[in-house]
């Protein structure tokens, strides 16, 4: 089986995987912001497709979702957004199951996955879809060559790991601590425990939830992570630009600088995955 573009992005050393909510605060500015992340060293980019009831998100990303929805973001616009982006790295769409399920005329998740694949989306993360409910989406993703990324939580029991990793492709999202998304100054020691548990599996393990500095990113990579996912710390920069009326260029520059800091933190500590296996 050929390796996906997403899995390949983890081959040359630990990957930097930033997240932004697509369309926050507007369609046009958000395009600039995502492209700035690539210039700052992103290996894979996660794009949030906003849902009105984001039960897994903390206040920072909730507000990003409110701004994006207010600007008129919809699943239809989201795919136009992806098609407008001029980036070469793999893209992952992070959204909630109801939007996937409702898309298109035909019942089930396949129309959404078809459209996503056509637009250039390489993978999906669906925070409210545990493996127990995921078979229809897994089948559609397999048929269309789209990765489906599952989250391993600190509470995930050992007997859930096998089915979870079996269903996951591209990478596995290691939730560093309990709770919702949001930048924190400390990163839980759940992380090293989770990474230890995943050592026997082939999939790259990317750690997210609460990472905001290059130093933290470096520590987690030194602890064995194959990638670092950063969301709220970047969304904070978008929010700050929005609230203080900064120009799109200035906010984009700040995002690029933050991405650079995180990339540097990762590469200083990290070795290529091939040398660690």
């Amino acid at each position: 089986m050929s390796e996906s573009d997403i899995a390949a992005a983890f081959e040359d050393g630990p990957a930097f995987v930033p997240y932004l909510t697509a369309g926050d605060p507007t369609f046009e500015s958000s395009i600039e912001y995502v492209e700035a992340l690539e210039r700052g060293g992103a290996d894979v980019i996660e794009l949030g497709l906003p849902f009105s009831e984001p039960i897994a998100e903390g206040p920072t990303i909730q507000q990003a979702i409110v701004r994006s929805l207010a600007d008129g973001m919809t699943p239809v616009r989201f795919f136009e957004f992806v098609e407008t982006l001029a980036v070469d790295v793999p893209l992952v769409c992070m959204t909630y199951y109801n939007l996937i399920y409702q898309y298109g005329e035909e019942e089930g998740p396949r129309p959404f996955v078809e459209r996503a694949a056509a637009a250039g989306v390489d993978g999906l993360i669906v925070p409210d879809l545990p493996v127990e409910e995921a078979q229809p989406l897994r089948t559609a993703c397999d048929a269309l060559g789209v990765d489906l990324i599952f989250i391993v939580a600190p509470t995930t029991t050992d007997d859930r790991l096998d089915p979870l990793l079996e269903h996951s492709s591209g990478y596995v999202y290691v939730q560093a601590r309990l709770g919702v998304t949001g930048a924190r100054s400390d990163v839980s020691d759940h992380t090293s425990h989770s990474l230890d548990r995943l050592k026997g599996y082939d999939l790259p393990a990317a750690v997210g939830f609460g990472i905001s500095t290059g130093e933290q990113a470096g520590e987690i990579v030194a602890g064995g992570a194959d990638g670092i996912i950063v969301g709220s710390a970047l969304v904070d920069i978008v929010a700050d630009g929005y609230e203080n009326d900064l120009s799109v260029e200035e906010t984009a520059d700040r995002l690029e600088a933050k991405a650079n800091e995180l990339t540097t933190g990762i590469t200083e500590q990290g070795q290529p995955r091939s040398e660690r296996l």
Binding site: I55, A56, Y97, P127, D128, L129, P130, E132, E133, F150, I151, V152, A153, P154, T155, T156, T157, R160, L164, Q175, L178
Partner: peptide, 22 residues
Amino acid sequence: SETFGRYGGQYVPEALMPALEE
């Protein structure tokens, strides 16, 4: 059964699944 016909199920974050099992 976790469903009532086509309705029901467990559409929650992975972090909550062990709590629902408990």
